[in-house]
Design a protein around this nucleic acid. Structure first.
Lengths: 228, 228
DNA sequence: CGCGCGAATATGTGCAGACATATTAACCCC
DNA sequence: GGGGTTAATATGTCTGCACATATTCGCGCG
């Protein structure tokens, strides 16, 4: 029975799935569907808008709505704070601050963050542990301009959590890749040299001001999951 | 100036970013904001709904809307068809079908797909090339029940594209990890043994019926990107 | 035949009002 | 004071209408 925009969404999805509406087909207009289902056009609009957002439909003004030919599947993945991620797996989270010093950032870093060459940034290395076992090795360039004076005690609160609580970052990008463990990474994470690591790299910005550039190396066994 | 729900969204985001509304704070009701901005409540609702979806706000009926304390950042990543991915990088896509045979699927596969033990599935190995260079090594278990008779010629069209065009999968999951290249993977991809590979694993379903289980191994240099 | 311009049209968004629903706050009774 | 019931309230969604906007179609003109 049709009840609410979500049942319309599901019904449309069903028709697409059963090939009543094959890929590329122009589907009825919002008004027609509204009449068919006995609801207002706004309700149909809501359903179709969600499906377009999910990549199932393609919509254009005047041209109408059609079933996507090559539906670019979109996956949304949550990027939790490491503490939550560890605790969600039923482990106790702890961390060790390995390095915390001002350093002249190399050019790739300054250029990526839009800072002048040779800028002094904080270089911070943190090892995250799950039940005392190495979980992830975090290396970070942090823009000191955003810190209060005196700075927070990063041996007590992890940089990650301090940032989440004190800086509202609004934009950023994230990328993932695989890399072999360097000597240092192998030692810190307690894996063999050359082991395959899952790398997450993020840069975050508060408007135009760069905040931080993080690289997170996860040891073998780590798996990132998302629903499609 | 306030003009459209998106400017309300941005204004709310600005207030959060400037700490006018710090994390955890209860923000004004939709009605109050509607009055303040001089718009209808539905317009404010649209803006706040998007922000809640993005993880910036937390909303509860009767309890109101508050700024998320630990904003779970959500990244959406597009999962394109490999051909598109290769062509988007300015390369020519081609592929070679390496293996295509019926096999008794091992238990982990059948259990993951919800099939009886010892079920006969198609085992398909495909190497994807970008400008003739190995790009990704695809290994796949495919449920033959979904194929027409006679089956499509997978030397002409890649399994991936045939599925996209002929089967509307509705659900699935996707996960990513890093792994070292096995002897076969190293040989096929032309990398050294033990190289770090970026692995994508997907299972897809058409309603209750399992379709396929794919593992995609990308060589070094591959990077998956998403906007936050 | 080609080109440009205006009309037609499907979606995008807006408004005002209404009811549904989850959750909290207040209250009453013991 | 404690516990359970009731009322209040903010969000969730719907309706019906209206206008904005991007495209496309078709017509007329050179």
């Amino acid at each position: 029975m049709i009840f609410g925009w979500d049942s319309i969404r599901r019904e449309v999805l069903r028709r697409i799935g059963q090939r009543e509406w094959p890929p590329g087909m122009l589907i009825p207009t919002e008004q027609d569907l509204a009449t068919e289902f006995g609801v207002a056009r706004a309700t149909v609009n809501r359903a179709l808008r969600e499906l377009a957002l999910a990549g199932v439909l393609e919509r254009k003004r005047r041209a109408g709505t059609r079933v996507a030919l090559l539906p670019v599947r979109k996956a949304t993945l949550d990027i939790p704070v490491i503490r939550q991620e560890v605790e969600a797996r039923g482990h106790a989270h702890s961390f060790r601050l390995l390095t915390h010093e001002a350093r002249e950032a190399p050019v790739p870093v300054t250029s990526r963050l839009g800072l002048p060459e040779g800028a002094l940034l904080l270089w911070i290395e943190t090892l995250h542990l799950a039940d005392g076992q190495p979980f992830a090795f975090e290396t970070r360039w942090l823009n000191p301009a955003i810190l209060p004076d005196p700075g927070p005690d990063f041996t007590q609160i992890s940089v990650n959590e301090w940032l989440v609580a004190h800086v509202s970052y609004t934009l950023g990008d994230i990328s993932f890749c695989a890399a072999r463990a360097s000597a240092r990474e192998a030692k810190v994470l307690g894996v063999t040299l050359g082991e395959a690591l899952f790398i997450t790299e993020r840069s975050t910005w508060a408007g135009p001001a760069p905040i931080t550039l993080v690289r997170l190396a996860h040891g073998p066994g780590y798996r990132m999951q998302a629903l499609v």
